[in-house]
Amino acid sequence: LSEQDFVSVFGITRGQFAALPGWKQLQMKKEKGLF
């Protein structure tokens, strides 16, 4: 994903996403169907 695509999918930047705890990252990926 490009940075723009990432933001459009998750609503946050890669940096903000990386700062989230692992379980939260997994939850967001599952919600978006990316896992």
Score class of each variant (00 low, 15 high):
residue 1 L to A: 06
residue 1 L to M: 09
residue 1 L to N: 11
residue 1 L to R: 10
residue 1 L to W: 11
residue 2 S to T: 07
residue 2 S to A: 03
residue 2 S to P: 02
residue 2 S to H: 04
residue 3 E to H: 06
residue 3 E to S: 09
residue 3 E to N: 15
residue 3 E to F: 12
residue 4 Q to W: 07
residue 4 Q to S: 13
residue 4 Q to R: 11
residue 4 Q to V: 13
residue 4 Q to Y: 01
residue 4 Q to G: 13
residue 4 Q to K: 13
residue 5 D to L: 08
residue 5 D to R: 09
residue 5 D to V: 02
residue 5 D to Q: 08
residue 5 D to T: 07
residue 5 D to G: 09
residue 5 D to M: 06
residue 6 F to C: 14
residue 6 F to P: 03
residue 6 F to M: 06
residue 6 F to R: 03
residue 7 V to L: 14
residue 7 V to I: 12
residue 7 V to Q: 13
residue 7 V to C: 08
residue 7 V to D: 11
residue 7 V to E: 14
residue 8 S to W: 04
residue 8 S to A: 14
residue 8 S to E: 14
residue 8 S to T: 12
residue 8 S to L: 08
residue 8 S to P: 03
residue 9 V to H: 13
residue 9 V to W: 01
residue 9 V to P: 01
residue 9 V to Q: 11
residue 9 V to Y: 10
residue 10 F to G: 07
residue 10 F to W: 07
residue 10 F to N: 08
residue 11 G to H: 15
residue 11 G to W: 00
residue 11 G to S: 05
residue 11 G to K: 04
residue 11 G to T: 02
residue 11 G to Q: 03
residue 11 G to L: 00
residue 12 I to S: 01
residue 12 I to G: 04
residue 12 I to L: 11
residue 13 T to Q: 00
residue 13 T to L: 01
residue 14 R to F: 10
residue 14 R to N: 02
residue 14 R to G: 06
residue 14 R to V: 07
residue 14 R to K: 15
residue 14 R to H: 07
residue 14 R to D: 04
residue 14 R to S: 09
residue 15 G to P: 04
residue 15 G to R: 11
residue 15 G to Y: 02
residue 15 G to A: 15
residue 15 G to N: 12
residue 16 Q to H: 09
residue 16 Q to F: 06
residue 16 Q to T: 09
residue 16 Q to I: 05
residue 16 Q to D: 05
residue 16 Q to W: 01
residue 16 Q to E: 12
residue 16 Q to K: 12
residue 16 Q to Y: 07
residue 16 Q to S: 08
residue 16 Q to P: 05
residue 16 Q to R: 07
residue 17 F to C: 04
residue 17 F to W: 04
residue 17 F to Y: 00
residue 17 F to G: 05
residue 17 F to D: 03
residue 17 F to S: 04
residue 18 A to Y: 12
residue 18 A to N: 15
residue 18 A to G: 11
residue 18 A to E: 15
residue 19 A to N: 12
residue 19 A to T: 07
residue 19 A to R: 11
residue 19 A to S: 12
residue 19 A to V: 09
residue 20 L to D: 11
residue 20 L to Y: 11
residue 20 L to H: 03
residue 20 L to M: 08
residue 20 L to S: 06
residue 20 L to A: 02
residue 20 L to V: 01
residue 21 P to E: 08
residue 21 P to N: 03
residue 21 P to H: 02
residue 21 P to L: 03
residue 21 P to W: 02
residue 21 P to G: 06
residue 22 G to F: 10
residue 22 G to V: 13
residue 22 G to T: 13
residue 22 G to Q: 13
residue 22 G to R: 11
residue 22 G to P: 14
residue 22 G to N: 08
residue 23 W to F: 08
residue 23 W to Y: 08
residue 23 W to S: 11
residue 24 K to F: 05
residue 24 K to C: 06
residue 24 K to N: 04
residue 24 K to W: 01
residue 24 K to A: 08
residue 24 K to H: 02
residue 24 K to Q: 12
residue 25 Q to D: 01
residue 25 Q to P: 00
residue 25 Q to C: 00
residue 25 Q to N: 04
residue 25 Q to M: 03
residue 25 Q to H: 07
residue 25 Q to F: 05
residue 25 Q to L: 03
residue 25 Q to A: 02
residue 26 L to R: 12
residue 26 L to Y: 09
residue 26 L to G: 10
residue 26 L to D: 13
residue 26 L to W: 10
residue 26 L to I: 09
residue 26 L to H: 10
residue 27 Q to I: 14
residue 27 Q to E: 14
residue 27 Q to D: 07
residue 27 Q to G: 06
residue 27 Q to P: 02
residue 27 Q to C: 04
residue 28 M to H: 02
residue 28 M to C: 01
residue 28 M to P: 00
residue 28 M to E: 00
residue 28 M to V: 00
residue 28 M to T: 00
residue 28 M to I: 02
residue 29 K to C: 12
residue 29 K to Q: 13
residue 29 K to P: 03
residue 29 K to Y: 08
residue 30 K to H: 10
residue 30 K to E: 15
residue 30 K to G: 09
residue 30 K to M: 14
residue 30 K to F: 05
residue 30 K to A: 14
residue 30 K to N: 14
residue 30 K to T: 08
residue 30 K to I: 07
residue 31 E to S: 04
residue 31 E to G: 07
residue 31 E to P: 01
residue 31 E to Y: 01
residue 32 K to P: 10
residue 32 K to G: 10
residue 32 K to D: 01
residue 32 K to T: 09
residue 32 K to R: 14
residue 32 K to Q: 10
residue 32 K to A: 13
residue 32 K to H: 03
residue 32 K to S: 13
residue 32 K to W: 05
residue 33 G to M: 05
residue 33 G to K: 06
residue 33 G to L: 06
residue 33 G to E: 12
residue 33 G to P: 15
residue 33 G to R: 08
residue 33 G to T: 06
residue 33 G to W: 02
residue 34 L to S: 15
residue 34 L to V: 10
residue 34 L to H: 14
residue 34 L to A: 14
residue 35 F to L: 15
residue 35 F to E: 14
residue 35 F to R: 14
residue 35 F to N: 03
residue 35 F to C: 15
residue 35 F to A: 06
